[in-house]
Simulated scan of single mutants.
Amino acid sequence: MPSPPLAALALIASVAAVSTPAPAGQATGIELAQVTIRGRIIIRVPSTLRDRVAPAPQLTPARPIKWAEKKGPKCIAADQLGGAIVAGDYVDLVLRGGDRVRAELDGDCSGLGYYGGFYVKPSADGQVCAGRDSIRTRSGDQCTIKKFKKLVVKK
């Protein structure tokens, strides 16, 4: 059962203080306390881009894009993540601005594609790094990021 809101508790305390007459010479009042709430930030990365990217008008039938892997960065700024495409033992991350980076995962991450999306918890430096950080599936599994590879369109 959820606890009553702090405003409701203050209202109850003020009504109780007003309804009870105070002896002569004593002041009545309300005692207030401070509450500190701490939290953590976890970024949920959507697994589709259909709501984020407007389709470009096409005059010819679309051809599938072929990607080539190049040497990738060691780390990616977490605020640059825009979306992801899950495929087997890797995840293609779509960054803001349209660049793509493939995150190769260490071990079996079978639950990754079952639910729509996954979670990434950036470190204190705001970066998601290969060999250090992991992807968490919505079912609770955890997969370490082995390495990043930059994806470029094959010509």
Rank of each mutant, 00 (worst) to 15 (best):
P2Y: 03
S3N: 11
P4I: 04
L6N: 12
A10D: 09
I12P: 00
S14P: 12
V15F: 11
A17F: 03
A17T: 12
P23N: 03
A24G: 15
A24H: 13
T28H: 14
G29K: 10
G29S: 07
L32C: 11
A33C: 08
R40C: 09
I42P: 01
I43N: 00
I43P: 10
I43H: 02
I43F: 04
P46W: 11
P46C: 08
S47M: 02
T48W: 03
L49C: 06
R50W: 00
R50K: 07
D51P: 03
D51E: 07
V53M: 03
A54F: 06
A54I: 13
A56T: 06
Q58A: 09
Q58R: 10
T60F: 05
P61H: 04
P61F: 03
P61K: 02
A62N: 08
R63W: 04
P64T: 00
I65T: 06
I65K: 04
K66P: 00
K66E: 09
E69A: 15
E69W: 01
P73Y: 01
K74R: 14
A77M: 03
A78I: 10
L81Q: 02
I85F: 03
V86K: 11
A87Y: 15
D89A: 10
Y90D: 05
V91D: 12
V91H: 05
V91Y: 10
L93T: 06
L95F: 15
L95T: 10
R96I: 07
G97F: 13
D99S: 12
R100F: 01
R102P: 04
A103L: 09
A103R: 07
A103D: 01
A103N: 05
E104M: 03
L105H: 00
D108G: 12
S110K: 14
G111E: 14
G111P: 08
L112I: 02
L112S: 01
Y114S: 08
Y114H: 07
Y115R: 11
Y115F: 10
G116V: 02
G116C: 04
F118G: 08
F118I: 00
Y119F: 15
Y119N: 02
S123Q: 09
S123C: 14
D125R: 08
Q127L: 14
V128E: 07
C129S: 07
A130I: 07
A130E: 01
I135R: 13
I135C: 13
I135H: 13
T137L: 09
S139A: 14
D141K: 15
Q142L: 07
Q142A: 15
Q142I: 02
C143G: 06
T144G: 15
I145P: 13
K146C: 11
K147W: 04
K147H: 06
F148H: 10
F148P: 03
K149N: 11
K149I: 04
L151K: 02
V152Y: 01
K154F: 04
K155D: 03
K155M: 01
K155S: 05
K155Q: 07
